[in-house]
């Protein structure tokens, strides 16, 4: 039963991720005085892509075919670890937060290799920038998450959330630092403004789009879906780690329904904040990104130090 709910929860998370992308687009359009597409547009796009005939370069190798499947399954695995509507499900024990970061690294490894595979300048450029940004973002993310996990003295996400729930609403400086760090990292890792702009195809600025330029058809659909799922995952992670209230702690139908409602509400609010930020902030130069991520790293480190200095003694 538990396993069934865990699988259903993962499926729901995977299934709802295009909806989040649609909602984000809608919010942005709304803020920028544009006519928004339907929130279900990402589903239609994915469906359209799966029906199209993929075109592959003569220079593409087996790795190029293989990569989209690897990317999506690694991201789905990451989704299975993150508590979405209910906590204490068996899947969260199979992997902890370090493994979660590992899954993201796994997906990125294949995506960047696929970028280099065809041998165009665009792919190489995207891959090079992606590994640069991620190698700065990954430590910051780990540090931010470690702050939380040290407070709860577990690296298991479900147990960490349990701990936060039991502790009740305590204002911890370390959590505040970690929250801000994680927000900054999430923006960088999911390729949003100001680090990357998912809406443009301009060689000076693009990162993610440059890497996947050679993909088409179902392969592109898989990668798009994976990146929407990644955005969703970061949202869920931030929402449930820092504001876990509402998440289902028992497996009754009521609790689950309420949990789903709560997380959707939290995500809607988070997305609105992201849309505001994306509208208000301009994309920054590539070589300003290290300052941005360095700041995130510093915040995470401050969070950890404040945990160690201030909170352990309490």
């Amino acid at each position: 039963m538990n396993w069934l709910i865990a699988i259903l929860q993962t499926a729901l998370l995977v299934g709802l991720s295009p909806l989040l992308a649609g909602w984000l687009k809608r919010c942005k359009c709304f803020l920028q005085n544009r006519q928004p597409p339907s929130v279900f547009q990402p589903y239609r796009d994915l469906l359209k892509l799966t029906r199209k005939q993929p075109v592959l370069s003569h220079d593409a190798s087996w790795l190029f075919h293989f990569a989209p499947y690897m990317v999506l399954s690694a991201t789905v695995l990451a989704a299975s670890v993150v508590p979405f509507i209910a906590v204490d499900l068996p899947t969260s024990a199979t992997a902890d937060v370090i493994v979660l970061v590992g899954f993201f690294a796994f997906a990125r490894f294949f995506l960047t290799l696929a970028g280099l595979d065809v041998g165009t300048a665009f792919g190489g450029m995207g891959a090079s920038r992606e590994v640069t940004i991620s190698s700065l973002a990954e430590p910051a993310m780990l540090m931010a998450v470690f702050t939380l996990t040290m407070t709860a003295s577990t690296t298991n996400l479900a147990f960490a959330i349990d701990h936060v729930l039991q502790a009740g609403l305590v204002l911890r400086p370390s959590f505040l630092f970690a929250l801000f760090a994680l927000l900054l990292v999430a923006v960088a890792e999911t390729g949003r403004v100001p680090v990357d702009n998912p809406a443009t195809h301009l060689e000076l600025t693009m990162i993610h789009e440059a890497m996947i330029l050679e993909y088409s058809g179902r392969h592109l659909a898989l990668i798009e879906w994976a990146s929407q799922l990644k955005l969703m995952l970061y949202g869920v992670l931030i929402a449930n780690l820092f504001f876990p209230w509402g998440i289902a702690q028992s497996l009754s139908l009521n609790a689950l329904g309420f949990g789903l409602f709560a997380i959707l509400l939290k995500l809607a609010v988070l997305t609105l904040i992201l849309a505001f930020a994306e509208t208000a902030v301009a994309k920054m130069r590539l070589f300003r990104v290290q300052e941005y991520l360095g700041f995130a790293y510093l915040l995470a480190l401050l969070g950890m130090l404040s945990h160690i200095v201030l909170e352990v003694l309490l």
């Binding site: 960047t112 290799l113 280099l116 041998g119 590994v131 430590p139 540090m143």
Partner: peptide, 26 residues
């Protein structure tokens, strides 16, 4: 531990380079 996290991330970048440049492309 943070330095180790940076090391791990850079190692991944380094071996993406190794594999991507040596085996992939033209």
């Amino acid at each position: 531990a943070a330095a180790l996290a940076l090391t791990a991330a850079l190692a991944a970048a380094c071996f993406v380079k190794v594999y991507g440049i040596t085996f992939l492309g033209v």
